[in-house]
Computed example of a mutant assay.
Amino acid sequence: MNSSKGSNNKVKGEDVLRKLPRQTRKRSTRKPKPKVKKGNSTFNQIKWVLIILTFVGVGVWFGLTFSEGINYFFSRDRKEAESKSLFDFRTAEVLSRHEGKMIGLDVSHYQGDIVWADVDSVIGRASIEFAIIRSTMGVDGKDKKFKKNWKGAGANHFIRGAYHYYRPDENSLEQAKNFINTVTLVEGDLPPILDIEDFPKEQPMDSLIKGVKKWLVTVEKHYKVKPILYSGEYYYNTHLSKAFPEYTVWIANYNFFVEEIKDHWQFWQFTENGTVKGIKGKVDLNVYNGTKADIRKLLIK
């Protein structure tokens, strides 16, 4: 056997292979399959089980916590279905947790012409027993529906209250004068109410507090009764609570998860989307933290 000849043939064969077009060369197109780690698969299964259990748990908690709202919203009562809205879900829940406490509303010209003779209850669940009505705003503003609403609420035997909307950058004594000249309070009415919720643009907060104090003192001197102070919870806690600890407070808080009135709130405005027969559109609803016997102590004598 001639080994050199075999070697020469091998070299020639390799030369021919190099000269072949690239596309004729066979290459493997199979990609290696990634190895699935058993630990990762188990972790993913546990993760999804925990997610599902979390959703189920939240659903059960929600159903138990807001059972009254759910029952109301999904009830098949035809009379309720006619005017039912999603906002009534929370209203029904709040009312269920305050049985025995007084429920009321507050209105202004934004509610238009109210048919006071038809105003009787909130979603058919709780009787309305008091009405708080906007009277004045700033140094010269007067609510154009105040006189009609004041008369209508009184004629239909609601406990009445009048409130002044405080404008932070206007003279506090002139604002007090505007309220006094517009509102006549009699025995059985709520004390005068000051609504303070806006921040000043032309003065610091300490000057605002002094102005609010002047309004309260002036109005108290005229009516011989200490006014009620209205504000949002954050505004009151941050800017008013330390300056006016001795005043009856009316707090606005619409937080969905706040379902019960706090002990130091005498009044709680819990929604601005209430539904009441006799009023077109939405209206603010309130809880008084007490009974009829309790509120009599607060009323003008």
Rank of each mutant, 00 (worst) to 15 (best):
I133M: 00
W61K: 10
T136Q: 07
S96C: 04
D113I: 10
L64Y: 12
I132R: 01
D77S: 07
T65W: 06
F130P: 00
D88H: 10
L53M: 11
S83M: 12
M102L: 14
S85A: 13
H109M: 09
G63A: 09
M137W: 12
K101H: 14
E129A: 04
W61H: 06
V56M: 11
F62M: 10
R134L: 03
L53E: 07
I51F: 09
T136F: 05
W116S: 02
E129I: 01
D88N: 14
L95G: 05
S127V: 11
I52V: 13
F89Q: 04
I51Y: 10
F130H: 01
G57W: 01
K79D: 15
E93A: 11
Y72V: 04
H98D: 03
S85K: 14
S108C: 06
V60M: 04
F66A: 05
R76N: 14
I128N: 01
R125T: 02
G59E: 01
V107P: 07
F66M: 08
S135Y: 04
F89W: 05
D88A: 13
D77N: 14
V107I: 12
G138P: 02
V94A: 06
V115Q: 13
T65K: 14
S135I: 01
G63P: 03
R78Y: 08
G112C: 07
R97D: 05
T65D: 07
A81L: 15
G112N: 06
L105R: 10
K79W: 12
F55E: 07
D113Q: 12
V58T: 07
R76S: 08
Y110E: 08
T65E: 11
V94D: 11
